[in-house]
Computed example of a mutant assay.
Amino acid sequence: MEELNKNQKIMHYIIHLLSKDDKWVRREVVLALIYYFSEKGYLDYKCSPMPHIWNDKIKFINISYEALEDLNYIIKNNYIQEILLSVRGLSLFIVGYKAKNNINYDNLEYLEDIKNFLKNKEIKIVENGIKVGDVEIDITEIKPVSFKSKSYIMEL
């Protein structure tokens, strides 16, 4: 198995912190935290708007295709588990993640900041993002993209 890169390790760490005690963390929470920590400079992703179903509504959310590819990579290589839950009355699955394998987080910046931000705080999914304690993360706020984009084909 290949060594995870910095972004993949931080993503794993976030899921690890939130999925302790046999809990699962919803995909929406992970996506919003990827956006938030990318904006803070902890993750090296450039987020841009893409269509997504958020709270049963089609919205544009700020996310990076590279982040989604990294998330799929750590799932495919058994670093985290993914669960799909079918709910009566909904046509979509609820997706959740749980850290599976422990990894080495040595020499990674920002781990203490991430831990302190998430520590003992209730996380709620709200209309346009999530709320972590008193901090609301609006993942649907459209911002100008500061880079030129090119077509990107995501691996399936």
Rank of each mutant, 00 (worst) to 15 (best):
Y152E: 08
K76R: 08
K23D: 14
Y73W: 04
L108K: 03
N104A: 01
F117R: 09
M154A: 12
V25E: 00
K9F: 03
N7G: 03
I114D: 07
E127L: 00
D106M: 08
V29R: 06
E109M: 07
V87P: 13
S86G: 13
I74H: 06
V29N: 04
V135L: 11
E66Y: 06
V135H: 04
L108W: 01
E109A: 10
S19L: 10
K121M: 04
K131T: 05
I125Y: 02
Y73M: 07
G96E: 00
G133A: 10
E122Y: 08
K40M: 02
N77W: 02
E122I: 10
E109P: 11
T140R: 05
F117E: 02
E136P: 04
I10S: 00
I153L: 14
K150T: 14
L18T: 00
V95H: 10
I114G: 02
I14A: 13
M1F: 12
I137M: 08
L4K: 09
K131W: 08
E141W: 01
I137H: 04
Q81S: 15
E3Y: 14
L18V: 03
N77F: 07
N104V: 06
Y105W: 14
E109W: 04
D44W: 01
E122R: 15
Y79L: 11
P49H: 07
G96P: 09
I74Y: 12
Q81I: 01
N102Q: 15
Y42R: 09
L31C: 01
Y35P: 01
Y13Q: 06
P49K: 07
D21R: 13
K98R: 15
H12L: 05
D70W: 12
I34T: 15
N77S: 11
E2S: 07
S91Q: 13
K100A: 05
V132I: 15
V29Q: 01
E155A: 11
Q81E: 11
Y110F: 14
R27P: 00
V126F: 13
F93A: 12
I58A: 15
L84G: 06
L90R: 15
D56H: 08
V29M: 11
Y110M: 06
L156V: 00
Y35I: 15
S19T: 11
V87G: 06
D70L: 15
S86I: 13
I114M: 09
L71P: 01
